[in-house]
Simulated scan of single mutants.
Amino acid sequence: MNGRLILTKTSDLVKNANNDIMTENLKIPILANSYTDLSEFDFSFKGIQIMDVKTSFFANYLDSLEGNDEKWDYHEMFEEVVLQNIEEHEKYYAIVKTEPFENFNYREILAVYKLLLIIFPSDLQIQYVLEFNGYDLGMSISSWQRTYTGEYPGKILYLPDAPVSEINEFVEKVFVRMNEKGAIGYIIENYITSYEASHRHFQYLNLCFCLETIVDGRTELTYRMKRNVAILCGTSSFNSQLIFDNITKIYNLRSKIVHGDTYNEQKIEDYLPFLISIVSRTIIELLIHDIYDITAIGRLNKRITTLGFGDRHKISDDWKKFDFNIFTMTTSNWIRLQ
């Protein structure tokens, strides 16, 4: 991917900026906490590329944004503020638009980060954001403290022998389905927010909110939610039953948390790996089936009433099997909670 970078000519950038084509400030998020080379993932269908910030390609990209104003040296500023604070063994990645001043939309940039975190529950985070305030104001750099959960399936993003081509096929298929105004947007935002929670029980509750969204109506909500998730994510009848039983335990603990009852705090730590993985898999399956708003949720509920455990492939004609993360597949389908 790095070798296929296409840059707009500087003269065109200046012209576009002067013609007010860009409707918001150009921003570049910098991702930390990945062992995997994120530049292998292909978002070129949206004119987006992930770049290793230590490469000459990224240096050239920053140089291309300077325009004709010689008072700015963006890469020198980036090197002083960011690169000097990165250890030699650490990997950092920038999400950039290959045509940065043409219809820039930061929500699409963030969607790349969100998709990576959905596929790979991990400590992947945005640690820096570079913001370009036009040719007169230059570049500013925001930063956040680097954090780690220290708990599986947290830690560094790692892709063990999964086919990158399968992931690239998936992200192109579902990217336009990440409707931030629909039910799927609510689920994704709660999932992302769970990583920012100040306490583990808040993370736990945020993830439960995600599962509750996939049920419409007002009756038998918990039972229907458990059944829906079990059918959506279970790879077989056995695994669906296991998921159903695990979510029963998840919600018994949830009830104690929200009602102020005494509960074993260690259970939160024990249950979170499964809960994170099952929400990850639920979002993936909803995106595959194109379930994005409350109307689609209603169709999903109606369809699932006619299906049984192990029938996830029958939910829609658009379904295709995408596993690609052995950690979430194993944890969501084969772990029995105690």
Rank of each mutant, 00 (worst) to 15 (best):
Ile283Asp: 05
Glu265Ser: 12
Asn2Leu: 09
Gly217Arg: 02
Leu5Ile: 01
Lys314Gln: 13
Thr306Gln: 14
Val81Leu: 08
Ala230Pro: 05
Glu66Ala: 10
Gly260Thr: 06
Ile268Ser: 07
Phe43Trp: 01
Leu286Glu: 07
Asp261Pro: 07
Thr331Ala: 05
Ile243His: 04
Asn190Tyr: 13
Lys256Phe: 02
Ser280Met: 10
Glu70Gly: 08
Leu232Pro: 02
Tyr61Asp: 02
Lys91Cys: 12
Glu24Val: 05
Glu172Ala: 13
Trp334Ala: 14
Lys71His: 13
Asp37Phe: 05
Glu24Ala: 07
Ile278Val: 15
Tyr35Cys: 11
Ile231His: 06
Leu116His: 05
Leu253Gly: 04
Gly154Glu: 07
Leu159Asn: 11
His201Asp: 11
Thr282Gly: 03
Tyr128Val: 00
Lys97Arg: 14
Phe202Asn: 15
Val53Glu: 03
Glu99Ile: 06
Asn325Thr: 10
Phe58Ile: 01
Val14Ala: 02
Asn133Cys: 11
Asp323Glu: 13
Glu90Ile: 06
Thr149Gly: 15
Asn325Tyr: 09
Phe45His: 05
Leu286Phe: 11
Leu337His: 13
Leu211Arg: 01
Asn228Phe: 05
Tyr128Asp: 01
Phe244Arg: 02
Ile187Trp: 13
Asn33Phe: 05
Thr305Tyr: 14
Leu26Thr: 03
Val53Asn: 04
Glu102Ser: 14
Tyr113Lys: 10
Leu7Ala: 03
Leu307Arg: 04
Lys256Gly: 01
Asn103Tyr: 14
Ser316Phe: 07
Tyr113Val: 07
Ile167Ala: 10
Gly310Ile: 00
Glu180Thr: 09
Asp311Phe: 11
Val129Leu: 14
Leu287Tyr: 06
Arg146Thr: 14
Phe322Asn: 14
Phe274Ala: 03
Leu62Ile: 00
Pro273Ser: 13
Glu196Val: 07
Ile278Ala: 07
Tyr106Ser: 00
Phe41Lys: 00
Cys233Ile: 01
Glu108His: 12
Gln203Ala: 15
His259Cys: 02
Val81Met: 07
Ile50His: 03
Asp63Ile: 08
Lys302Pro: 04
Cys210Pro: 00
Ile326Ser: 15
Glu40Met: 10
Phe324Trp: 09
Gln127Arg: 13
Phe309His: 06
His89Ala: 12
Val229Gly: 03
Thr222Cys: 01
Lys114Ser: 15
Gln338Gly: 13
Leu116Asp: 02
Glu102Phe: 10
Ser64Lys: 02
Leu124Asp: 05
Ala94Trp: 03
Asp216Gly: 15
Ile288Met: 06
Ile214Gly: 06
Leu130Pro: 05
